[in-house]
Write a protein that binds this DNA or RNA. Structure first.
Lengths: 157, 157
DNA sequence: CTAACTGCAAATTCTTTGCATTAGT
DNA sequence: ACTAATGCAAAGAATTTGCAGTTAG
């Protein structure tokens, strides 16, 4: 049962309780969707997925919940260049390797890579410590993206 | 005269000529604005800046030009989480240090940092080489952002 | 109970497109 | 001259907001 500390109280419940936020079906369902995909979903995609199981949950709630999750540091929000926000759980279940992105600025293709990640993470954690101290920031997550032109797009020209 | 190879033919003119793109007043003005700011401007901000000198240039042209510059790899486009694209020259004038971003997910504040950059760049160039080879990608630029909660926002709670 | 949460529809905001005109090369 | 580039107005798409009804604690 990956992602849960135990089967009754998922690890993230505490993030809501005690801060005045309520645990609702919608919120459970949305976190669950994010927890069960390898992709970086748009708000609409989260909505579709949630909607299958709970047709009563609307797009507005999805937006509001995702925003809250970002505020809580549980979810990472980014953009691959198509003016559409993408969401991804910041804390991954154990065993799922952290990845970064390689993006083709010509066709928009996104490649997740896990190569070189270990070295990157090592350096990043050093940088994080330094930045936290210098700017008095509590760093919760990071985003690394490389931009370029993929093979197919290069061949077109 | 930073940013120019010489005063008559800025370094980037060649990027246009020979690819079928024309050199126009609007394009010159837009690159000039990006070249003379330390900020990450939104399309609208670029428009305002350009508009001061050339009131004839419209927002549409700014959008189209920025898009072209991104395609050419001259400009980096990103989003700090406010669903608004930001643009920054990918190639900086000599002497201006490359920076990365530290973003507060609570208030949206963005800090540019240059600390630790040298180590980061060194690692990144290794990663870039590896990725280029493995995925047959021509990497043009990268984006690194750290997300967290700034001091002020932490104190509020 | 009561304040947080929700859905719906309407409103915003950013960005793109169609088309007639202008301007590089 | 030929065609890319532009401005304007209108369209489009993603996200947010107002508000009355609902639900968790």
């Amino acid at each position: 049962m990956p992602g849960n500390i135990n089967m009754y109280r998922p690890w993230w419940h505490g993030k809501f309780r005690g801060r005045g936020y309520r645990l609702t079906t919608a919120r459970e369902a949305i976190v669950d969707v994010l927890n069960n995909t390898r992709d970086h979903l748009s708000a609409e995609e989260v909505y579709f997925a949630v909607h299958k199981k709970y047709p009563g949950i609307g797009l507005t709630t999805v937006y509001r919940t995702l925003e809250l999750l970002v505020q809580l540091g549980m979810v990472l929000k980014f953009d691959f260049g198509d003016n559409r926000a993408r969401y991804e759980l910041a804390v991954r279940p154990k065993g799922v390797k952290h990845h970064h992105h390689l993006i083709c600025t010509s066709c928009g293709k996104v490649i997740d890579y896990t190569d070189f990640i270990d070295d990157e993470i090592e350096l990043l954690s050093l940088t994080e410590k330094g930045l936290s101290k210098k700017f008095d920031f509590e760093i919760k997550s990071h985003l690394i993206q490389f931009y370029g032109i993929c093979k197919k797009c290069r061949e077109k020209k």
